[in-house]
Design a protein around this nucleic acid. Structure first.
Length: 318
DNA sequence: CGTATTTGACCTGCGC
DNA sequence: GCGCAGGTCAAATACG
């Protein structure tokens, strides 16, 4: 992985309200938004901005993107609180549907937002194929009774952000240390989903990594929660190996640099950036460095990707 | 030997 | 209530 697998970087963000409980969590309850780069002004849109724009309410997203509802594809369940029987909802579908667009338009980025997680990953429950599953009804629930603690209280979900990354490797290095704690086969997908947890103590951030079955070159990484710690110092080295110094050192303009500041801040945005004015200021800050970088390095206009990843990290297929 | 990964078992939520 | 699927746990295993 000489180039650590980076080829293209797409973004699919999902903002989830914690107010919603599991009832609405599983479904694409409210709405899922897909925004292609063509519908936004690339010069005003960067990956960071996209992240920051994914406020829990679509209004912010819409404003931040300068979108009218008609300019983005919106698919939502008509029922609202109940899942539909729609086939292939979720990451697979999102990726699948978007994949064609993505592949066809490599410069585009995907940014979608939903109020809950179901839009991207808790989806396949809808689709029942009746395929047999191993019977593990042991009956003795004594072994892992510690889970009973969650009984009686709705599990609060952290905000989630899902990224669609065109990568050859499943687990992309983002500067943080992750410990894999599980892997599950995804229904209707030959590729398993891996579950990672941040190894830093007291940090509850998790991420899931799965590969799109419709586009195996696309990896879907879903972050859940927010880091409550700085980037592990020991990993700065590795991060430095992945990204140029200009992106790892603080920007002269004070804007966050990719990737760790970005990743650190993106969940925080949900809690800190709830008004457009604030988002706008952040927005203005963030656009500069990346575009400056692209400009100084004479990066051709490949689109949003250049806002965050230098061209040398990108392979563009003809 | 310490840490990370693998993997089967178990728990939980949701749809029918 | 049952079955399915997602998510998590933790013992076993692999690795440096």
């Amino acid at each position: 992985m000489s180039d650590h697998g980076f080829r293209d970087f797409y973004y699919h963000a999902s903002a989830f309200n914690n107010d919603h409980d599991q009832q609405s969590f599983g479904g694409e309850t409210d709405s899922t938004y897909r925004v292609s780069a063509s519908s936004v002004n690339p010069s005003y849109m960067s990956f960071t901005d996209c992240l920051r724009s994914t406020s829990a309410d679509y209004g912010s997203l819409e404003k931040a993107f300068g979108l009218s509802p008609s300019s983005s594809e919106v698919f939502s369940s008509a029922e609202g609180s109940k899942r539909t029987t729609k086939q292939q909802v979720g990451a697979e579908e999102l990726v699948g549907n978007n994949t064609d667009e993505i592949i066809g338009t490599p410069n585009s980025s995907i940014c979608s937002s939903s109020s809950e997680a179901g839009c991207e990953e808790d989806s396949d429950k809808n689709q029942k194929h009746g395929q047999p599953k191993r019977s593990e009804d042991g009956g003795e629930s004594s072994k892992k009774g510690n889970k009973a603690k969650t009984k009686g209280e709705k599990k609060q979900r952290e905000p989630r952000f899902a990224f669609m990354t065109k990568s050859e490797v499943d687990h992309l290095e983002d500067g943080y240390r992750w410990r894999k704690y599980g892997q599950k086969a995804v229904k209707n997908s030959p590729y398993p989903r891996s579950y990672y947890r941040c190894t830093t103590q007291k940090c509850t951030v998790k991420k899931r990594v799965e590969r799109s079955f419709q586009d195996p070159s696309t990896v879907i990484t879903t972050y859940e929660g927010q880091h409550n710690h700085p980037l592990p110092t020991t990993l700065r080295g590795s991060a430095a190996g992945l990204f140029p110094p200009s992106m790892l050192s603080p920007s002269p303009l004070g804007a966050p640099s990719f990737p760790h500041e970005l990743l650190m801040q993106m969940p925080n945005y949900h809690h800190q950036m709830n008004n457009q004015a604030a988002a706008g200021s952040m927005f203005a800050q963030n656009v500069g460095p990346f575009q400056q970088y692209a400009h100084q390095h004479q990066v051709p206009d490949y689109g949003l990707l250049q806002d965050m990843v230098p061209s040398r990290f990108l392979k563009h297929e003809p």
